[in-house]
Design a protein around this nucleic acid. Structure first.
Lengths: 187, 187
DNA sequence: GTCTATACGAAGATAGAC
DNA sequence: GTCTATCTTCGTATAGAC
């Protein structure tokens, strides 16, 4: 792997583990096995490197989600598959995590990929819910965008509960609760 | 306000804004208008001061939540009141936020108040859901603990969505979606 | 109790040699 | 492209004067 690649990958790992504020160039360099000069040759500085890392992580998250949401099954089944998909729960979401970083939220360039990814996910889920309404799987009274927001929020908040308790159980409980409420009745 | 009080309050603000990793003793001292010596006289160091701040924030959160959850109304109405209560959405949750801090999660003493508070909230909500089942407001098939986890997760995740988009709208959407799913039918 | 002085490594970046 | 200085400020803490 090339040096810029290693720098980006190391940054992605550290951003996930420690966030933007908690990630120092020094730590990135050590993990990547590179020297100071390399980093400042390929990137303008910490924000520039972080931006490259965040963009890649955001794209990866979209790809993973689409793999499940675009799969087979009824709308409910695809949402269920998304919620039940295997996750490293205690590590949390590498994208959502960044919203707790004041320097990411304050910087439009850094926040943009985060916003776009979660926005895309919400819109994608909203469309699936609307599809489910047309098929009679969901009640006509439900609002696709609201359900989509609740689904994404349950996942993001599930990570919070899991990390607080040190166990994935709370994440699973929240997902099961939401799925129970969402399940098509009378079948 | 006494010096230790000012130190704790300043720390609470900074932990909320910037998290544990992003909060330096120096910043706390400036905000509190105190000198280095004062802080190390009253507290053993940064973790000790942070613990005092986190404990107070956790207690405050429990008090606020109990004010709504212990209020009047049917179980559904009390859960609704909790979800719709006024919040400074873009600031996020001062307790839940700490779960994204690796140094908090890694330190049992710092994590304990976070875990206890969210655990208490889940149990409190679970009891209310069970009460609603007894009254026939919720279906007997729903699981109180699961619904409670979904409710808390929706709130915690709602903050993530709001901060990502820079607007409270996503938080509100998620809450409305969950309430629509939770609403008693046929009445 | 509070202050200043001092310490030492880390954060973030630049300069210039190779 | 990569490396090793070098720089300045910050982070965290101790020592000791007042």
């Amino acid at each position: 792997m090339s040096t810029p690649e290693r720098l980006i990958e190391s940054t992605r790992e550290l951003l996930w583990e420690r966030g933007y504020v908690g990630t120092s160039p020094k730590a990135v360099l050590e993990r990547a096995g590179a020297g100071q000069g390399s980093m400042y040759h390929h990137f303008k500085g910490k924000p520039d490197l972080a931006l490259a890392a965040i963009r890649r992580t955001a794209e990866e998250m979209r790809t993973t989600a689409e793999g499940v949401l675009g799969g087979p099954g009824t709308p409910y089944e695809r949402i269920e598959a998304y919620l039940l998909r295997e996750r490293d729960v205690l590590r949390g979401c590498p994208v959502g995590r960044l919203t707790m970083d004041p320097e990411v939220v304050a910087d439009d360039a850094l926040r943009a990929p985060v916003d776009e990814t979660l926005g895309w996910l919400r819109a994608r889920l909203a469309g699936i819910v609307e599809e489910g309404k047309e098929r009679g799987e969901f009640a006509p009274s439900v609002n696709g965008e609201e359900i989509a927001a609740a689904v994404v929020a349950t996942v993001q908040g599930g990570y919070v509960l899991a990390r607080a308790s040190g166990s994935p159980a709370a994440f699973d409980a929240g997902v099961r609760g939401l799925l129970a409420l969402l399940a098509p009745r009378d079948r």
